[in-house]
Amino acid sequence: MNIFRLAGDLSHLLAIILLLIKIWKTRSCAGISGKSQILFAVVYVSRYLDLVTTFISLYNTLMKLVFITSSFATLYLMYVKFKATYDHNHDSFRIEFLLLPCFVLALLINASFTPLEVLWTFSIYLEAVAILPQLFLVSKTGEAESITSHYLFALGSYRALYLLNWIYRYYAEGHYDLIAIFAGAIQTILYCDFFYLYITKVLKGKKLQLPA
C-alpha cells in the first residue's frame, strides 16, 4: 500500500458515498445513469469473486464488500425506491455494446485462461468503459447537478491515482500488470473532457453546462 493507492481507494469510496447521498437527500436519481450503475455492479461482482476463494487482508475484504453492497444499494434506490425520478428517456445507451466486446476481449487477452482470471480481466475492461452511459447522459441533457459533478470527479480521480500507484510500484517493486495499466489509462482518458469542464466551471461555482 502506498499513498497513491490509498488516495485512489478513498476517492473511489468518496464517489460512491457522494452518489448515495445525492440520491438520498434529493430523493431523486435524476441525472444519474442507471446503465452505468448496472455496469459497475457487474464489474464488482465479476472482479470480487475471489472474496470466497482467497483472503488477502481485512482492508481488502471490507472494501470489496462495501463496493458490492453500495452498488446494489444504488441500483435498489434507482430502480425500486426512486424509480419515478429515473431519467429513462435520456439514459438510452445500449450496454450490450460494451458488455459483449469486453467479454470477448477478456477471453482473448488475459493472464491465464481460467474462469476467475477471465472474469477478473473482463471486469477490468468493463470498468474502463462503464462510465460511458453516464457521460452520454450528461451530454444528452447538456448539464449535471454539482453533486453529480463531484461524484464524477471523485470517480475519475480514483483510476488516475491508481495510474500513479502503478508507476510507483513499477519503480519501487518492479511490479506491473499490463492489462490493468492499459485499461486504467483508457478509463482515465475518458474522463479528461469532464475533468476539464469540472476544473474550469464547477470549481468556480458555476453549474456544469455543456456548450450548446
Partner: peptide, 10 residues
C-alpha cells in the same frame, strides 16, 4: 502477470 500480489488492488 496477475499474481496474488496484484489482486490486493481493488
Amino acid at each position: 502477470a496477475n499474481s496474488d500480489e496484484s489482486k490486493d488492488e481493488l
